[in-house]
Amino acid sequence: MITIRNISFCYPDGNRALNNVTIDVQKGSNVAVVGANGAGKSTLLALIVGLHNLMEGQIEIDGKAVGKGTLEEIRKKVGFVFQNPDDQLFMARVYDDITFGPRNFGYPPEKIKELADNALEIMKIGHLKDRAPHKLSGGEKRNVAIAAVLAMAPDVLLLDEPSSYLDPKSRRNFILAMEQLPHTKLIATHDLDLVLDLCDRVIIMNRGEVVADGAPRELFLNEKLMECSGLELPLSLQTRK
């Protein structure tokens, strides 16, 4: 589904964010990308949807290479939830924000309504649909941002720090909602307990490189690897260690 081959990326200020990264993500799988701050997680997700120009290597979604000519098609298939929901929400009403994507894709009004209602239902935020996004709490904004992406009916979900801003109950609702979704998911997060609950595979990154790739429980119990990657054992595993 997602094929990333030997990609490297350097920001204009000279910061080398990614170095020769190769990853394959199978259709329908839930894959987490973890690592310390500055490991390159967010850059990796941004490159998949073509927010930065790829310098080296290649990214393919369903066999289609990410590039200028294919961006529209790629963005229809891949939904990206930003790290900060304030960057994503800008319309006057939650409902308008959720229908923004489907309207851009030129769907008929009935389909737009169906997609929006479905997204509101999945995230359990129907009661927020007439509210102004800037007046919502951080957690509510996060749920709206996810619903706005779900309304685009993508095949792949890229989630950047999806559990930040969420209270424990909202976090649990988020995990339950994600478990039910058949989408292929690539989740960049620091929430290792969420990875244990939701993901069948984890990729550990450090200074722009993939340092480990495997089952979450197995990798998280590797003390040396975790320490070298600037990570700590998840809370739920600390008592079982």
Binding site: L51, R75, R103, F105, A148
Partner: peptide, 17 residues
């Protein structure tokens, strides 16, 4: 960042009312 988020949701410079 807002503009990039809009582009990710299919914005092509044409506002669909």
């Amino acid at each position: 960042r807002v503009y990039l988020a809009m582009k990710c949701r299919g914005f092509d410079g044409d506002y669909h009312f």
